[in-house]
């Protein structure tokens, strides 16, 4: 718990200022978002167009490669639920909506034929997001994407544990040594010696 100072300082002050917490409501409301993801249901706080744009941003933050990215992981369902009134990240919703509009505005000025961020070409998306990197909007989408990608699947993202599989995290409840390579090696050496 003690070493979150770095996290605090680097861009989470916006996070901190806007997080409202209602732990009891959070869990039950979140478990619904997983069901909505499975059903492909409509969004609660975002229009379909806004959700498509935010999903496209999230997909650039954690893209599909040879393994799933944020879109396939269902991160947008996490985001939609997380910004519900009374929920922990509710204060971010206006920033997300404004940010989507700003992206559309920048898209227009860039001369791209796409009307919405979700439809823009990959290079154009990257260029716009690079421009938006210092903004609170980008920080928020980035944070929500990462949390949604790695939180328990019941919260809407990390579908089928793809986030955990990516990094090699296993949520088994119990382990026995050897835990990793180096203690495993030591164990083998000690066994050989005896």
């Amino acid at each position: 718990m003690k070493d979150r100072r770095q996290f605090l300082r680097e861009g989470s002050s916006a996070l901190g200022a806007l997080m409202t917490v209602n732990a009891i409501g959070a869990t039950s409301l979140f478990s619904i978002s997983c069901a909505r993801r499975e059903a492909g249901a409509a969004f609660v706080n975002l229009s379909d167009a806004e959700a498509a744009d935010l999903e496209a941003v999230a997909e650039q933050i954690i893209p599909a490669t040879d393994t799933p990215g944020a879109r396939e992981a269902g991160v947008i369902y996490f985001i939609d639920t997380a910004v519900t009134e009374g929920m922990p990240f509710a204060g971010m919703l206006p920033f997300l909506k404004d940010g989507v509009k700003e992206l559309a505005g920048k898209l227009q000025s860039s001369g791209s034929t796409a009307m919405r961020f979700a439809d823009a070409e990959h290079d154009v998306q990257i260029s716009l997001l690079t421009e938006m990197e210092p903004t609170p909007f980008f920080g928020m989408v980035s944070t929500l994407t990462k949390i949604g990608f790695f939180a328990d699947p019941k919260y809407g993202g990390n579908k089928d544990k793809v986030g955990w599989e990516l990094i090699g995290f296993d949520d088994r409840h119990a382990w026995q040594p050897p835990f990793g390579y180096y203690d495993g090696q030591l164990m083998a050496e000690e066994r050989d010696e005896s």
Binding site: I61, I62, P63, T65, S142, G168, G180
Partner: peptide, 15 residues
């Protein structure tokens, strides 16, 4: 901190 490089780093570093 984002993009394919970030994703690859996550996969490489975490464990």
């Amino acid at each position: 901190t984002w993009g394919t490089g970030y994703k690859a780093a996550l996969a490489d570093y975490y464990t």
